[in-house]
């Protein structure tokens, strides 16, 4: 009877396992295997095993390390900024009023815009001579702050980070707002009776009970941060001088050259790096969650 039950469970799992195997496990294993070959567009049907050559080339490439550094920088910066800003915005709009519901919609609106469209808008905003950002800064006399945002390697990455935060902070706000609504009002009342100030309520009641919301926003932000592509492709395409190169644009570029074996190696290494980073972060967050 027990054996029958376990076979029954396997049959139920089979479609999911098959789909997962076909669309994830097999392509990844095949990709890993191709990473050890010289497969390229010029010899499409003549694939040769080249050992660890692709990996040696990859680790020896300066741009690869720039891409790794930039990807993690982008992910960490956007995780922090989107969460801090999202939380503050949620605090600001949490009280029910007609104005606040209008404000929530306005803050959420950028998410509805396609990333590439956002890039086009920001390329125009950041234009050093005609963009509204520099025109505004020059207009109020802050000439020293008017920079060549996307074309100067010192500012380009942060300019892209700011664009991403502008677009996605609204989603975090919404998740935090829902989290805040889910906290029973009794906890706040009890805190008030104990003489807690507003910020003490936030610090000692709200924040600990919202760790689940933070876990969700962290997961979303880390995933979108590590797979950043369109934001860079649509604004700087990895330039100037590779200063905004990220893992996805690096991979895209090597694939564009038709070096498929090498690209497979790049993809495999990136996958390992992302898995390690994600596992560490999720492990930490899981431990912080509180049941109530």
């Amino acid at each position: 009877m027990k054996k029958k039950k376990s076979i029954y469970a396997w049959w139920l799992l089979l479609p999911a396992i098959l789909i997962y195997a076909i669309f994830f496990i097999i392509p990844n294993v095949a990709g890993m295997a191709l990473g050890f070959t010289d497969w390229n567009v010029y010899f499409f049907d003549d694939i040769r095993f080249n050992g660890l050559e692709n990996f040696a080339r990859l680790f020896g490439e300066k741009t690869f390390w720039i891409a790794v550094k930039n990807t993690f920088y982008f992910a960490i910066m956007t995780v922090v900024l989107k969460n801090v800003l999202g939380f503050l915005l949620a605090l600001a709009v949490r009280r029910e009023s007609r104005f606040n519901s209008y404000l929530r919609t306005v803050i959420f609106l950028p998410i509805m815009i396609s990333s590439i469209v956002v890039c086009i808008i920001f390329v125009s905003i950041y234009n050093p001579s005609t963009g509204i950002l520099n025109q505004f800064l020059n207009g109020i006399g802050l000439h020293a702050l008017a920079k060549s945002w996307l074309v100067d390697e010192r500012y380009a990455m942060n300019a892209i980070v700011a664009m991403e935060v502008w677009q996605w902070a609204g989603l975090n706000m919404l998740i935090f707002y829902s989290g805040m609504q889910a906290i029973p009002s009794e906890y706040y009342e009890a805190a008030k009776i104990d003489g807690a100030s507003y910020w003490q309520e936030v610090r000692y009641v709200m924040l600990p009970l919202m760790v689940q919301s933070f876990t969700i926003t962290f997961i979303f932000s880390i995933i979108s941060g590590l797979k950043v592509f369109s934001q860079v492709y649509g604004t700087t395409n990895g330039g100037p001088a590779d200063s905004t190169q990220v893992m996805a644009t690096f991979l895209y570029r090597s694939f564009s050259h038709g070096h498929y074996g090498y690209s497979a190696a790049v993809g495999f290494v990136f996958m390992v790096l992302i898995m390690l980073f994600s596992a560490i972060v999720f492990g930490i967050l899981r431990k912080k969650e509180v049941e109530y």
């Binding site: 074309v151 100067d152 390697e153 330039g239 100037p240 001088a241 590779d242 200063s243």
Partner: peptide, 11 residues
């Protein structure tokens, strides 16, 4: 093309 462009971005 990218390499020439990079000289105009600090390389």
């Amino acid at each position: 093309d990218l390499r020439v462009q990079s000289m105009f971005s600090g390389k």
